[in-house]
Amino acid sequence: MKNIALGQYYPTGSVIHRADPRMKLILAVLFIVCTFLCKNIYSFGAILLASVLLVLVSRIPLKTVLRSIRALLFIMIFTLVINVFMTKGEVLLFEWKFIHIYREGIVNACFMLVRIFALIIGTSILLTYTTTPIALTDAIESLLSPLKKIKLPIHEFAMMMTIALRFIPTLMEETEKIMAAQKARGADFTNGSLIKRAKALIPILIPLFVSAFRRADELSVAMECRCYHGGEGRTSMRVLKYRASDFLLFLAFAALCAGLIALNLLKTPFAL
């Protein structure tokens, strides 16, 4: 448990890695919109191509990327099955008792599969694999900063995210220690009914909560000692700066968007 990877940042130094995190966040949203723009086989083909291109540009090994897709395999298969069996259409391909499979169902299922695939690739390549959690937090704070005008606590939100990221490994380690201590006292976490096992977790959660509160207390004192007084008048060591390459990336994505809309106009029997 100690070696849990926080995020899955995979440094290769590619163009996408070097891009401004704010731009990547915007592009990720744009890419999600793109996947929902697709209406027919041409546009779905284009988005699939774009996803593969994205992986190649990021220089992240295909194996690593496919691993993150494996986690969502169940959802993909589930959507596939539901779409194949539940879609009603005009061209009946197969019939047996209550099962009817239409051509439209198969087409739909393939489209959905491509859509989920593109969603995962788009967000993981643009964000999780190529952006550190801290850069992401910066980007969110920076992009949402206009909302400070209407008194939304954006800085506080970003600070909370940073501290949460900082303390996840610490609390993980602590959980392990408490579990070991309870095991040494004869606690059993692996046997018995579900309710019994859930109950066995209470002696872990209570000390964990107590210690988390104590940590929070000490941390707040330490932060105050280091002159923390909220976001007002605060500077940052890292300065985010858009570069020409960021705008080129944006143009590429905008072109993709426009291309998809154009492709949707082409006539084909394979359409949603």
Partner: peptide, 26 residues
């Protein structure tokens, strides 16, 4: 407690925390 006084997820970010609070230029 060394754990309960470090704020950031990266060492250099943590060292920068104090100067950032008092508004030192980047």
């Amino acid at each position: 407690n060394p754990d309960n006084q470090l704020v950031a997820t990266v060492v250099e970010e943590d060292v920068a925390f104090g100067p950032e609070n008092i508004g030192v230029p980047s």
